[in-house]
Design a protein around this nucleic acid. Structure first.
Lengths: 196, 196, 196, 196
DNA sequence: CTCTAATCGAGACGGTACGTCGCGTCTTACG
DNA sequence: CGTAAGACGCGACGTACCGTCTCGATTAGAG
């Protein structure tokens, strides 16, 4: 018969109402992520928490994964916006320090994103952005394929940050920056001058 | 009164029948993992594929994760049995080469385990075993907490292998061994004598 | 923690949709009762027959017994509404005749209710209603406890009607009314004046 | 293929072992009936209670219903053996008194049989035997079909006895005998000479 | 300030998978 | 070599959640 009745128009308008709903859903997800892993969160919980009708969720996102993707992309965008400039202009340690500082500052948010079973999706999003960047700045190392380098770096950073935010007695930003630098940056971009 | 009438006894006996069923289920899972991600595999698919009744699955494992855990523990055990001896007696590159060679030899199995959404559980199991080993050989580096070192190393290795097995034109064992060594071993256990 | 997340709300609204579903389920059960005993009827059969999703059944009734109870209460209500007035105003024979006539008129329905293994539940419901009525009109006989009288009468009536509706060549309404009267009413309420 | 492999030889022999097993199963069922309704009793419970292997049950009875039938037939046989002679030689009240006395004497057994959801099957068995008897002694009443008379009488007796055995403060045997007589015997076999 | 269309809330529903349960059959190890 | 212990196939159950689908009720922004 009619194989596609449910075009299910996504409210694309930037009407205040739409924005309000989306924000509420995003915050509901984040707040739930602090209590339980992502896979156990149900759409009903989110909508209930956001004070929004159940069906309304699907008017904005096809899945709960989609919402998380959105959130992840947004937050990673902010993160990169803060740290990328430094990456281009300064040495790598300064850049990782900026990264760690930023994450630490928003640790509640990033703990939810990195330790609640959501890390996989977040990493995916991170990877996507990182691969885009990598195309502009190819890695010269012959023994290490570009894609693998980026994958490894992103995974490493995500894993280290996740470990950090899980600790009850976490190391300082400075210490973590050094760890990130030594474990993920240096092996991939070996310091040019090693002799001095 | 009697709060537990049903017990749902797990067949613990080593009768041939039990063993046959378990093997069939394990192989069914592996063969399905080659076609679809772990989360999309249903218990019904596995039992159907294994020629076993649906309920029988739960007589052996509480859920599909448990089966995967079992499989993972078993295969990782075999892997470590092959590579650990070398790790203790020889240099790290030989050890990583042995690891890569072993994985390459059983690449069909490991591709299923590492690229089908099952990597997370496999990593968990790997981590468990690695942490046990780490307790016996504490890492002396002061800037790097033991647990983080192991977590990072395992994640890195898993990720690198996963990337490798996904490639349509994969690098050689030798190349990958070098990559693994440079990215995960060297940063954590810096070569003692670098000056010569 | 939160011991009841799921609530499994029963649709209580009198929306047309809800009513339609309930009706469909009731009719499905009745129509199935004509072919097989109640205990052999599965929820899947009912929902299939009613053109309704399997889970939907449980949104309305906790089990198939509940649906039958509902049906029974409803039909017994109608039956009593027809026969009670007569019971109060006229002699007992007229009342039993009204009862039999009513049942005969709806014999397809009552055959399903009384001969399909559903009789037990129907009797239970009947008993409940009859006991309520009995409280208002206590039975004066000293040798016969009230509760026993009602239980016996209801059981007797149900049994007689069940037998009647099972016959391939059933007696007339008038004959059955007399049987019911002589077997269940007269022994319990002996005619005061027998001599005239 | 082989459509009937499981002829499942029932041990028909009267070997002591067979008899012991059957007795144990029967007693297990009875003892369980004192605690829970028949439908909730599982074969595993019975075999466990009887100290007998699970599969062994099915070597003796196809169902749990079959076991109950056996039990019922046996006990009803004993009951009738005690009360029938009186029925033939003496007045009806003496007969019902004998019946009630017998039941009262074995009230633990009969309570289990009559109040534990097993009544239906017991009634069925009772009916079977009673119909056999009725063929030999046709009921002369023209207004009451034989089969209905027997059905009604058996149901009535069973129901009255069930009520009796459920009471916390039960009437005496004498009282119950009178009730049974007045409710089930007299209406069916009206006393010939009432006038004297 | 009103009208009209987009959006929303509420929640019933079909569907799929889950995990549990009990029955009756079949295998196997043990005595 | 027969029998108990118990694994197994089967199929129903009841639960959970998803994503779709009505309905009205609200709301917002265009006229």
């Amino acid at each position: 018969m009619n194989q596609k009745l449910n075009e299910l128009k996504r409210p694309g308008g930037t009407s205040p109402r739409t924005a309000r709903t989306r924000t509420a859903l995003g915050e509901a997800l984040l707040s739930l992520l602090e209590e339980q892993p992502f896979e156990h969160i149900t759409v009903k919980q989110m909508t209930g928490h956001a004070g929004v009708g159940y069906a309304t969720f699907f008017r904005h996102y096809p899945d709960k994964e989609a919402l998380l993707h959105d959130l992840a992309a947004h937050e990673i965008g902010k993160l990169l916006a803060m740290t990328l400039p430094i990456l281009y202009t300064a040495d790598s340690l300064a850049s990782t320090r900026a990264l760690c500082a930023y994450v630490w500052e928003h640790r509640r948010l990033w703990r939810a994103l990195l330790t609640g079973g959501a890390a996989a999706i977040l990493k995916e999003e991170f990877l996507r952005k990182a691969l885009q960047l990598a195309e502009e700045r190819p890695n010269p190392e012959p023994w290490l394929p570009d894609e693998l380098a980026v994958t490894f770096a992103v995974t490493g950073v995500v894993e280290i940050l996740a470990w950090w935010l899980k600790q009850s007695d976490p190391p300082s930003v400075q210490q973590m920056a050094e760890v990130v630098n030594r474990l993920t940056v240096t092996p991939i971009f070996p310091p040019e001058a090693e002799h001095s």
